[in-house]
Simulated scan of single mutants.
Amino acid sequence: MMKNEKMGYLYRFRALLYKDICDLRWNGQVLFNLITGAILISLFALLPHGEIPISFVFAFVFGMLTLLMQGNLVVEEKEQGTIRRLKQAGFSLKEILFSKMMITFMTTVLILILFFVLYGNHMLFHLQLFILVLPIIMIMLVAGTFLGIKTKNTIEVSLYGSPIMIFYFFLEGLLMNSSREGMPWLAIFPNYHIHYGIDQIYNKEPFLCYLTVPVIWMAVGIVVFITWYKKQHFN
């Protein structure tokens, strides 16, 4: 019985993934963000190394692509009225949201792979970078999902998502123009640890200690979102 339930869940989830992947071909807003992100990443990767911090480059990916793409994918189901039809077909909202998160996560990873290929360096360097930024990706996925649920259309997703992006870039600007001792209060934000964690990787020094704060932010974000989600009694 339990095996049949698991098989049924996997079948439904695979069907949702297939639907979402097919829908991407006609999603102008998402395709625009994806193409823009790919172009910006390619340009940054081809600049001389050290010209612009990698953490600032990643801010474009996580803001313009991960955050907005996730929000748009979720809210467009509401705009088009397909969430109700999917529920009637037996899909739960949790399955729908998780499918969107998987699509956005895979797209973000593909853009990062493009950057890694163009940027060069060895495989271990790229793997360490991905591990370091993984908590930020998860934070943006959760934030994008929340935006998609709370907003009414893609315009509102961009409107309410912009302050998050602006604040992210503001912190990156402060990090680019200050020393590690200059603004110690920045250490409460995950950007600080991503920025200096990348320096550690460049210098081939231990970087895992710089994961602590981003992981705490990620865990708190996920717990808060799940708690809020359960209180809303979504099905």
Rank of each mutant, 00 (worst) to 15 (best):
M1K: 00
K3L: 09
K3W: 00
N4A: 11
F13R: 12
F13G: 07
F13C: 12
F13Y: 11
R14F: 06
L16Q: 09
L17R: 01
I21R: 06
L24G: 04
L24R: 01
G28I: 03
V30C: 00
F32C: 00
T36V: 01
A38I: 13
L43F: 02
F44Q: 09
A45V: 15
L46A: 04
L47Q: 07
P48E: 14
H49C: 09
I52M: 10
P53Q: 15
I54D: 11
F56Q: 12
A59D: 14
V61Y: 09
T66V: 15
L67V: 11
Q70W: 14
G71R: 12
G71C: 14
G71H: 13
L73F: 10
K78D: 05
G81M: 14
K87D: 08
Q88S: 11
A89M: 13
A89Y: 07
G90R: 15
F91N: 06
F91W: 11
E95L: 14
E95I: 14
E95K: 10
I96F: 07
S99P: 05
M101A: 04
I103M: 10
F105Q: 10
V109W: 11
L110R: 07
I113H: 06
I113S: 11
L114Y: 03
L114W: 08
L114T: 10
F115W: 14
V117P: 03
G120C: 14
H122D: 11
H122S: 06
L127F: 01
Q128Y: 00
Q128E: 04
L129M: 09
F130R: 06
F130Q: 09
F130L: 13
L132A: 07
I137K: 05
I137H: 01
M140F: 05
L141C: 10
L141M: 12
A143G: 09
T145I: 15
L147I: 11
G148D: 12
N153C: 03
I155W: 02
E156A: 00
V157T: 07
V157R: 03
S162E: 10
S162Y: 09
I164W: 05
E172H: 02
E172T: 06
G173D: 08
S178H: 02
E181C: 03
E181A: 01
M183K: 02
P184M: 15
A187Q: 10
A187S: 11
I188L: 06
F189S: 05
I194M: 15
H195Y: 13
G197V: 15
G197N: 13
N203A: 04
N203M: 07
F207T: 07
L208I: 05
Y210M: 12
V213T: 04
I216C: 04
W217L: 05
M218T: 02
G221T: 10
G221I: 14
V223A: 00
T227I: 06
N235C: 08
